[in-house]
């Protein structure tokens, strides 16, 4: 899977399921949590989505704000886990 596809899937999930704003023009490098777009509890949802969608697992210690604050950062980690 291409990184851009991963990013688009993440963007769609975050905008529709977490932000409840499917049309929000979320940029891939836009800070999500530190900017208050989503709260840190939502990371659990992102984590489960990633597990189910990409068939990988991100352990709790890695599911942190600094690792997961932008779509770019998330996608890089997912790509790495997918090997």
């Amino acid at each position: 899977m291409e990184e851009i596809e991963i990013k688009e899937k993440l963007k769609k999930f975050i905008c529709t399921e977490i932000m409840n704003d499917a049309d929000y023009p979320l940029k891939f490098d836009e800070p999500l949590i530190t900017s208050g777009l989503i709260d840190s509890f939502s990371l659990a949802q992102v984590g489960v989505f990633v597990e189910i969608e990409f068939q990988i697992y991100i352990p709790d210690p890695e599911l942190t704000v600094d690792n997961m604050n932008t779509i770019d950062a998330m996608a890089a980690r997912i790509k790495e886990k997918m090997g």
Binding site: F41, V48, D60
Partner: peptide, 11 residues
């Protein structure tokens, strides 16, 4: 898994 994460912020 999804519902618990969504409602409780917990995996």
């Amino acid at each position: 898994r999804m519902a618990v994460a969504k409602n409780h912020g917990l995996r």
